Amino acid sequence: MASQGTKRSYEQMETDGERQNATEIRASVGKMIDGIGRFYIQMCTELKLSDYEGRLIQNSLTIERMVLSAFDERRNKYLEEHPSAGKDPKKTGGPIYKRVDRKWMRELVLYDKEEIRRIWRQANNGDDATAGLTHMMIWHSNLNDTTYQRTRALVRTGMDPRMCSLMQGSTLPRRSGAAGAAVKGVGTMVMELIRMIKRGINDRNFWRGENGRKTRSAYERMCNILKGKFQTAAQRAMMDQVRESRNPGNAEIEDLIFLARSALILRGSVAHKSCLPACVYGPAVASGYDFEKEGYSLVGIDPFKLLQNSQVYSLIRPNENPAHKSQLVWMACNSAAFEDLRVLSFIRGTKVSPRGKLSTRGVQIASNENMDAMESSTLELRSRYWAIRTRSGGNTNQQRASAGQISVQPAFSVQRNLPFDKPTIMAAFTGNTEGRTSDMRAEIIRMMEGAKPEEMSFQGRGVFELSDERAANPIVPSFDMSNEGSYFFGDNAEEYDN
């Protein structure tokens, strides 16, 4: 993207840094990872977990959730003011799984939030270390993106479920800051804005008074975040219109849905970061690795190297396929839920299948599930090659597409044709070009129609051997075009429920 120079890199967003050079960025990201790792080690000690239990991804998720809940100030305040039966607002906890007599047992633990905050700050040299908290939120978000298709949420806001490739980060909490905003897809931002506008339509006082002023500035800020994701002048001009509207209503909703559809071809720039579970960072720190000293990046080879040398386990339900569970977590670790499966298959070195073909449910185990038949197995999170994460949407291309997802959002900077089903997408653009945004709409449609099938995206960008740390010898991959490109292809993934 041309304006790259004016933006802070995501590592800076990730670490609240002012302008830093590459070495400083690597050190501050490393410091953040160190903090998460030290916190995780301490929690495993508190909970008396064995090494194996500490490497269980379900335990990692519970521990991450506990610290996120302990620092969720708004919710904590709300819980104190609106006490609900049987919930102690000062405590947080969740299921911890232990191996007892050759069987997995679930144990519900409860801790004072104050105590968890103390352990977290102690692991982070006394700081609140917001960057580390956001990092864990993005890992949870990436896992949700890989596990669930947001059909219901899309339909509720009037969008087409086939636009799911635009929904990265749709389950990120509001408090995820600049680093969170960077990884949100165009569809996620559109959905947040539509929800806001709908509230304004239904509630006369939404934009009024002292609160209304705050609401208005939040609305304009979200519009600017979305505008910054678009790469064409016409899309940005249309966002200006939406932002400046005196009284946002149905016309703005129409414009936003139009823009979301246009992003299936004229893709937005959305950041991709490899955020790993805390149970990967903990053992690495415990083994003596100093992330701050060595430096770390979320968008280069580092996460690949770390996963190459990590042992992570997962509980497996009786009829689940461990290899499929591994694929789910591998995609989440690489922030690749909406990437082209052919690119992923090449990088991973084994075939990556669409969601609907995987015999696996989510990673988390519900409290009512029976533990008797639970097994555990090693997650295979290694890769054959590594590639640089991208934040450009890439230019655009036609490809055989599917009944489910009709476009992709690249996660890796790797040369390819970008699949999208042009006739299906263009069919949504018939007729409606009147109104105050008509010239911009016409211009956007013209650009979409001009998108050429034979153009290559990320020209000359390749993948790298894991021994090639400096990215000196790019390998331009070859793809098996007979395979499906979309992950949520004609899909039956479970729906995400809060």
Rank of each mutant, 00 (worst) to 15 (best):
N473I: 11
K357L: 10
K351H: 12
I41R: 10
N125A: 06
D372L: 08
S274D: 05
L379V: 15
A373R: 14
A234T: 07
T157S: 15
P161G: 14
S165L: 01
Y97P: 03
W207T: 00
K452Y: 11
L315R: 07
G228R: 11
M163V: 15
G54T: 13
M374H: 08
N224C: 06
Y219S: 09
G249D: 05
I425Y: 02
G177H: 08
I257D: 00
G5H: 02
D160A: 03
I225N: 13
I57T: 05
E294D: 12
R400L: 03
K351P: 10
P423R: 15
E53D: 13
E339C: 03
A278T: 07
A284I: 09
S402E: 04
T396V: 06
T134W: 05
Q42M: 04
G158N: 13
W104N: 09
M32Y: 04
I225V: 15
T92C: 09
I57R: 06
G37R: 08
C164I: 12
Y313V: 09
T350H: 11
T62A: 13
T188R: 02
L379G: 03
R389A: 13
T424H: 15
T157Y: 01
I57D: 04
T433I: 15
S438Y: 07
P477Q: 00
P477M: 03
D340I: 01
P477Y: 00
L306D: 10
V242L: 06
R361C: 00
M66R: 11
F346D: 02
T15H: 14
A260M: 11
R389L: 00
A2W: 01
K184W: 07
E46S: 04
E11Y: 06
Y52Q: 02
E114W: 14
A263Q: 03
E244N: 12
S326G: 10
L108S: 11
R391W: 09
N59D: 13
G187K: 07
T232K: 15
N76H: 01
V476H: 00
V299T: 09
M167H: 04
I265Q: 06
S326T: 09
R174E: 05
V100A: 14
A373M: 13
G54P: 08
F258R: 05
G349V: 10
G187C: 10
N144H: 04
T396P: 04
L276G: 07
P283G: 15
M189H: 10
V183H: 03
T92P: 05
A286F: 07
V285F: 11
M66D: 10
D439F: 01
E220R: 08
L68W: 08
P419H: 10
P95L: 03
A451F: 14
I119W: 08
D51P: 11
G158W: 07
Q459N: 13
L108R: 07
R8I: 00
G93E: 10
T360C: 15
L47Q: 04
L381F: 08
E494P: 11
T157M: 08
E64I: 13
L143V: 08
F479M: 00
G86E: 02
T146Y: 07
T45M: 08
D34H: 10
R441P: 03
K91L: 01
S457K: 00
M440H: 09
I406S: 13
E484Q: 09
I257F: 14
A401N: 13
Q20K: 02
L259M: 13
